[in-house]
Each structure stands twice: as C-alpha cells, then as structure tokens.
Design a protein around this nucleic acid. Structure first.
Length: 478
RNA sequence: CGGGGCGUAGCGCAGCCUGGUUAGCGCGCCUGCCUUGGGAGCAGGAGGUCGAUGGUUCGAAUCCAUUCGCCCCGACCA
C-alpha cells in the first residue's frame, strides 16, 4: 500500500498516466520487459468489459472457442503480407523438453493462421457457412516501446474469426462487429468514437481492408480502440479453405477478423481520468458505490452501521455493486481520497448528522459534487445517479472531442493547429500513400480513418492540392 | 537500435563529487493509546547481500571497468 502521489495531468500527461495506474493499483511492471501484471482492480475492469462484449457477440450469433498459443512457424509464412507484417515482432520457441525443436513454434501474435488451418477441415459446404467464432485469449507481440495497457508485449484480447460464402456477407459481418465495438465504447465505456476505414498503409497485414473505431484521449491524441477486418479470400487461399456452393461449384470462402484488447483500459484512464486518478464509468465498475460511515464513539458507530446495513440491503436486489468501508484505522477524509483515486463512481457518506435527518450525502466522482439524499428509496436514487454519471461522462468526452476537432484546408494552418492544440483534423486528402507518408514524416500525424459518416465533399488535398472527394481524419495517435 | 534519466527497506528519496564506526530520512507496515464530516497525533517496533560481476584500496553504497534491468524521448504497432 504505497502512497504514490499523482502528477498533475496538465503538467505531464504521460507521467500522470503511469501514476494513475499505480495509485489505483491497476497494474504492475513484470520482471520481463514490456510485460505487465494486471492487478485485481485492473482485471475487474477487464472482466466487466468481457461480460458486456461477450453478451453482444452471443447476441450476434457467435460462439466462443479456444485455439492454441503455439503455432508452427511455417503457418505464419503462408500468407505473404501477414508474415511481412508480423514476423519482426513474433516470439519464437526453439527449445522445449530439453531439446531443440524440429520446427520452431511461434507464440501467436494473432490467431488467423492456426484458426484457418482448422477451418479447412470444418468447412465443406455452403451449409457450413457462416462460421462465427470468437476467442478470448492472450497474444504476444515483441514491441520496441511499451506502455502499460496501451502497448504491452503480452496482452489480453478477444479475436473473432468468421467465414462467409460471399464478399458481401463478409463485409456485412465486418461492419456489424464494428458497430458492436462502437456501441460497446459509447454505452459501456462512455467513450464517443468515430467509425471509419483505415488507409492501405494503416490496415491489418493480410486484410483486404480494415475498419476501426477511433477515440480521443484527454490530451487530444487519438487512440485506435477496436478493429474489424475484411480479410477477403487471402487466408482461405493461403490455407486452401473452399466450400461447395448450392450450384455445385467450389469457391474460396471469405473471412473477417475483429479484435479488442486490454488497451481499452488505457483508453478508459486517458479519456475520463483527472488529477485525482482514474474515473470508472458506472457500467464498468464492479464497485459502483462505496459507503463511508462516519462516527466518533462506539455508540455512534453502532447506529450508523445499522442504518448502512438497512439501506445497503436493498442495493443488491437493485443490481448495485457496493462496498462498505468500515475500516477504523483510517479517517473519513483519507478514505475519500483513497476511493477517488480508485475511480469508484459514487460515494455515500453517512454520519450521525445524517441519521437525524434520515439522509445520506452522495458525492459524485466525475465532478466532485455532493448532495443530500433521503435514505428512503435510496437504491432508486443511487441507480439514477449512476445513470446520470454514465451519461455525463459520455457527454463530457464528446464535448471535449468537439472542442478539439478542426476542419482545416491549409497545410500551414494544419501544422499550427496540430502543434497548438492537437486533436482531430478533418482534411481533404488525395488518396495517395506518398502524401500520407510525407505528412506523417513531417508532422507525426497519421490518417486515423476515413470516417464513414462523412458527407461527400469536393476539395483539394491538404498537401498536394490534388482532387479529393471527402475529408479524412488526421491526428497524432498512441 | 539512437538520445536522456534512474537502480540504496514495500514506495519515494538523501548519502556518492571529497572512500573511514553500527547506511539515513519521509510515507507505508506492526503494537498500544488517542482520534474520525476531505489524506490526524503521540510512543514504541520490524524491515537493507546499497541492481550484478570484477577491479583499485588497509578499508567501497561512494572511485574505475564490465554487465543487467527499468523509465522517458525518437524509428514499428492494437
């Protein structure tokens, strides 16, 4: 229980981020470089995310399965673009059982290859399609620079892998799951996101094309928060997965894959956190409410705890996750701070003065406001308050994003705004990889996505002046 | 891999430049008393192969060399 003080967010965002993680006891550094230990407080958030997403996957017809961590090295080489994209960051097992292995094993950086190896046997007829499978697991990517949650050598995620009879079916699935991610981000994480398509430079290695949701963090930088890929027939061809059509012809199947990782915990911290620490949206909080009883004498303690017992009894049936902090080695003030840095959305204070008036004090984590509430029907008040906190977190994040979103048509202005404010820059782009690359080299801003909701609009490329039909989003990103 | 910073108690640090009894301080932890509406107080206590290895020296946390690791900034990525 080390006392870590949190660097001010405005002072040093990056240090603030790591301080918040330490203060809330979300994760530790592991003995192995780039790896992290997810502590109970952090893992609880991940479990909530899993629950919400898993239900959505099931609702859209998917089943869970599990494929192995180790993959024969040769599998990776079967899809040319895929191997090129991943080979540099793959960990390889060369020895096991005290001997050198005949064929090295790679530790999966993603599971397309091993899954499609199986799909070959599972798919024969159009009647076997679509095949809709999701897997929860871990993957390893040997990254050069790592940061807790945002980019770690090993991370937890889910990866969906589906097979379809037609390009259109696969496209529909790709977009459906993108939509699931968007809803998850908005409704559970209180995080507004932009759905869009990745440029060829930014797409997944081995994909026909990639979609993502992009979110804005508290320092106005972008974070890719979930990706959905249309893999075309690339993996079907690499692993020879064909099916017989109704007409009796043989075709390669179409594939999708989509993933969302523990990086989302980083997104949560950077989107909602403040100088006091993380702020967990109520729908992702295991402990949504913490009750801090206040008393001096044993006699008061008894009376206060009795009242606490009474109203918390009604919390569980109402679906409210709560904790009563009756530790008596700490003062109330200390507890207030303690729970704030852990991001618990709502605090209830109850002391002798409240008992006289049959009330409690509610303190919101998101804006620090306190108000009185009757003990009568408190479970309803609390439930409503949690909803209010959830939606105001979303609203605040949305307003922040709007404030840091700019339409820019002039490259000089582009540079100015990027340095002064950052944020999302909606600009015209001619579609060439050269312009994209040059802008990245000169400004460190990348094209986050080609937003799907953008209206077609004639314009000139911000760099070369070439013809453009729609705006894309540039930003500096994590 | 390049640039910068740092390894001394669970955490944060001082000591190092200028080598010398038993290596300090704050927080946290344990015991007791006292306290409790925004991080209380007092008293006592536990806790260290000074990142590792080698060297210089009568003597090394301190000087030298090597090495390992971590953090931050850049080139790759969810």
């Amino acid at each position: 229980m080390a006392e870590a003080k949190i660097t001010k967010r405005s002072e040093d965002f990056s240090r603030w981020y790591t301080d918040v993680i330490a203060a809330a006891e979300l994760a530790d550094y592991a003995p192995v470089k780039g790896c992290m230990i997810i502590r109970p407080n952090g893992y609880a958030i991940w479990e909530k995310m899993q629950q919400a997403l898993d239900a959505m996957f099931k609702d859209t017809g998917h089943q869970n399965a599990y494929f192995p961590l180790f993959i024969p090295e040769s599998f990776l080489h079967k899809e040319a673009e895929h191997v090129e994209g991943f080979a540099p960051e793959v960990a390889v097992v060369t020895h096991a059982g005290g001997e050198k292995l005949e064929e090295p094993l790679i530790v999966r950086p993603t599971s397309e290859t091993i899954i499609w190896h199986s799909y070959r046997n599972w798919i024969q007829s159009y009647r076997d399609l679509p095949l809709l499978i999701n897997q929860w697991g871990n993957v390893v990517r040997w990254e050069m620079r790592t940061r807790l949650f945002l980019r770690t050598t090993e991370f937890l995620w889910q990866e969906g892998h589906t097979a379809h009879a037609t390009y259109e079916d696969a496209e529909e699935e790709t977009l459906r799951m993108l939509g699931v991610y968007r809803r998850f981000a908005e409704e559970h994480m209180a995080l507004p996101v932009i759905e869009g398509r990745k440029t060829d430079r930014e797409k997944f290695a081995g994909a026909h094309h990639t979609y993502s949701i992009e979110a804005m963090m508290g320092d106005a930088k972008a974070l890719q928060s979930g990706t959905s890929h249309h893999l075309g027939q690339n993996f079907a061809k690499a692993f020879d997965v064909t099916f017989q059509t109704q007409e009796g012809t043989r075709e390669f199947v179409y594939a999708t894959s989509w993933g969302l990782s523990t990086r989302m915990i980083g997104a949560l911290i950077m989107a909602h956190g403040d100088d006091n620490g993380i702020v967990i949206p109520p729908r992702l909080a295991t402990t949504q409410v913490v009750v801090v009883p206040i008393f001096r004498k044993p006699e008061e303690r008894e009376r206060v705890m009795e009242a606490v017992g009474k109203f918390t009894l009604r919390f569980k049936p109402a679906g409210i996750g709560f904790k009563v902090d009756d530790r008596d080695q700490y003062s109330p003030g200390w507890k207030f701070n303690d729970w704030e840095k852990r991001g618990i959305p709502l605090r209830i204070e109850v002391g002798p003065k409240d008992l006289e008036r049959n009330q409690v004090v509610l303190a919101r984590r998101d804006n620090g406001q306190k108000q009185n509430a009757s003990q009568e029907g408190l479970e309803r008040t609390v439930r409503d308050m949690l909803e209010t906190i959830q939606s105001s977190l979303y609203e605040r994040a949305r307003e922040f994003r709007e404030k840091h979103t700019h339409r820019v048509d002039d490259y000089k202005k582009f540079l100015e705004i990027l340095d002064a404010d950052g944020g999302f820059l909606w600009c015209h782009w001619c579609g060439s990889g050269e312009c994209e690359e040059r802008i990245k080299d000169e400004t460190k801003a990348t094209i986050r996505c080609i937003p799907m909701k953008a209206e077609p609009e004639e314009g000139k490329c911000i760099l070369c002046g070439g013809r453009s039909e729609r705006r894309v989003i540039f930003a500096r990103a994590y």
